[in-house]
Design a protein around this nucleic acid. Structure first.
Lengths: 308, 308
DNA sequence: ACTGATCCATAATTTAAAGTTATTGCAACA
DNA sequence: TGTTGCAATAACTTTAAATTATGGATCAGT
């Protein structure tokens, strides 16, 4: 009899309240002897009598009263825990840490933050924007719950679900508007402005041109799509940006936009999480919300990208 | 699986701390499968995963972290309860409600309060002074833990332990100092001042004179021994006071004291408590402390009562 | 004072919970 | 591609907690 049990504390509270073994036992839905035994064992564990049993009534001892106060606190704590668990059940709750790559975050987040907050009130959403390798590392270390990145990631310990695809749009100085749209080969001959190393979008663009990322090339690296578009506007070169970035990034710059001819370059965006995460079910829901948000966003964007 | 157990919460805390089933199980001094099962059952009870088990580590989920905080509170509460019980064990502790009759209280209490406080530090002593019938009622109702009264009480549901006997001292106007000490019969002819009805000492005094308490008599009732002695000093009559009251009550009054000849009137003072009280062992200790206090007091008093 | 009713404790037994050892299965890593 | 580390599962044993039945004390009413 090393330690008391919660069950004993519940029985104790019932007996303290009813002052009667039979009725307290009934309230606990057990037989009277079961209650007697548990109370006796609790008293043995604590080393002192909790109740004084006289012929007509059962009442708390002074010690019992002190114990009752502490027991109340403990049981209220367990009730709170049970309530908390019940409220959290089958509901995305608490903290959700989402990582997003920089070439998606500025365009998608404003929409999905609103949608997710509406869908999951009370959710403590924490967002992190950084490049894919960091997201992968933080996800693996359990410092993120999920990430929105370009697929495939091909980490066997991660689950990937596709969200949507987006094309790459050519951004040229406005004077080039009437020139023919280059294909992958001709694009290779042009001064192509790209994001600095580490960004997956840089590799995706280079891959479209069949160029090796690590080869030393004569290109200027920008730290954001916004910068790249500004540089194009200044006539320094051309660049590619993902479809989703078009409305935001070309709002104020005087550049011309063009879709490529087939095979059009594009990338697949998806959500990833650890295979082992217990949030998988909820994350699938989140993915669906994000997919719909992106779809809506693409619809609104369609007009702005009527650029060929 | 209605509710979780304290055991599960302790295992949960261990696993949260160690992040490893094997080591946590070792810390809990159980086998690893036992821990696995209890954690699984806790998760089922709460309705959500508490840990994410990946190949190389076990870590808390967001939900698990929230639960861990609440579990900490609960377990600290149980620790406190266990500590409290351990400290209280085999030690008179908490509240002790002692009733004392008015013809004892003023003389004995100053001494025994000190002695008991010294003997049981931290004891929350609560004293009540009233007449025996009330003490008996409150004791029976559980509103007192024990009482110091004149024996016998002869309540079958109470245990009595004798503490000491004390003689009744005759108090006469100082002018009567040289008169012969009356016996029970001659005392009956004198104007005897007594406490009002309800005080046992009144009955004891009348009993000494073989007088019936309820008979209409020409006597003045005082509400305290102090008043009676003052009245005697004013020459209104004579009275009896218990030995123990002598030093206090005759300090400033000009009265003469006399012991009776045999058979000397006296009364036995004792402690009583409910047969069912779980404090019986400790109350026996308390009785011994009180007995010794009274003995010491009687020794100091002896000189002042050298009055015959 | 006997009698019946009330009520808690104890005993014997059954049922449920928790623990054990042995084994399987999955990932990670060399 | 084994090998290893670690948690899950299975089969079984032990311990804990329940049940029903019974006993003994106390109080109330005849």
């Amino acid at each position: 009899m090393d330690q008391f049990t919660l069950r004993q504390l519940r029985y104790f509270e019932a007996l303290a309240q009813h002052g009667h073994f039979g009725r307290a036992a009934e309230a606990c839905a057990i037989s009277q002897p079961a209650l007697s035994v548990q109370i006796r064992e609790l008293e043995e564990t604590l080393g002192a009598a909790l109740f004084e049993r006289s012929a007509r009534q059962v009442r708390l001892t002074g010690f019992g009263e002190d114990v009752a106060a502490k027991v109340r606190d403990i049981l209220r704590g367990t009730d709170e825990l049970a309530d908390f668990a019940r409220l959290s059940r089958d509901r995305l709750t608490g903290r959700l840490r989402i990582g997003v790559i920089p070439t998606i975050a500025p365009y998608l987040l404003p929409t999905i933050i609103g949608d997710l907050t509406r869908r999951y009130p009370g959710l403590d959403m924490r967002l992190r924007e950084t490049v894919t390798p960091r997201l992968i590392q933080e996800l693996a270390e359990g410092r993120l719950d999920t990430a929105i990145v370009a697929l495939p990631v091909s980490e066997p310990s991660f689950t990937e679900v596709p969200l949507f695809s987006e094309e790459f749009i050519l951004v040229r100085p406005s004077g080039d508007a009437d020139k023919p749209v280059p294909n992958a080969e001709t694009l290779r001959e042009m001064r192509l402005l790209l994001l600095e190393e580490g960004h997956c979008f840089r590799d995706q663009a280079l891959s479209f041109c069949n160029m090796n990322s690590s080869l030393p090339r004569e290109l200027l690296d920008g730290s954001s799509l916004s910068t790249l578009v500004q540089m194009v506007g200044a006539g320094i070169g051309v660049t590619l940006i993902p479809e989703m970035a078009v409305p935001v990034e070309t709002r104020s710059a005087s550049v011309s936009l063009a879709r490529f001819d087939a095979p059009r370059p594009s990338r697949r965006i998806g959500m990833i999480w650890r295979n082992t995460t217990p949030l998988a079910d909820q994350l699938r829901e989140v993915a669906e919300v994000v997919r719909q948000s992106a779809e809506t966003l693409a619809g609104q964007t369609a007009g702005a990208t009527a650029c060929t």
